[in-house]
Amino acid sequence: MGEDSARKQREFEREALAHLDTLYNVALRLTGSAPDAEDLVQDTVTKAYGAWDKYERGTNCRAWLVTILRNTFINQYRRKSKRPTPVEFETVQDVSVFEALQDRDPSGTFFRFIVDDEVKRAIQELPEEFRIPVVLSDVEGLSYAEIAEALELPVGTVKSRLFRGRRRLQQRLYEYALEMGYIG
């Protein structure tokens, strides 16, 4: 192996492969299936490695990788499955769960009873427009600006999708907790 390619490989491992968990998480939430998520991550990494010379050093590598992943998903994977139904942006109310239960459980202790699988299912059930910003922000810890860059959206759009996605996720978990008797 030449010195240049050894350097490229080391740099790629350090800068890009450090984000494999993030890529896998986003891939899993996009495809909804572990085998598809693995394929999508592998395709993304192969593309990113091929385009590594075009990656602008010093810019946000994680956002760059998520953009590649998302575009790969749109071009290759979504075609295989049914397109997601667009969100009825105007008809669904995004109510605050806190207002509904502040007399019974104001500190949200019921969250503690909800198992991981149920949280992941609830995230998966969000419309994609809300799901991916929520995953990037609340699971992966990206800033609004990073999410905007990764999803090629204005920051204001990220903000409002995040707001509504969180409200819906809360609502879903609240309904589940009620069903399970976690809230008296």
């Binding site: 890529l23 896998y24 503690r112 909800i114 991981d116 949280v119 992941k120 995230i123 609340d138 699971v139």
Partner: peptide
């Protein structure tokens, strides 16, 4: 809660 429970490792 979401940050602690929503993650799946590769």
């Amino acid at each position: 809660y979401i940050s602690e429970h929503g993650r799946t490792s590769a």
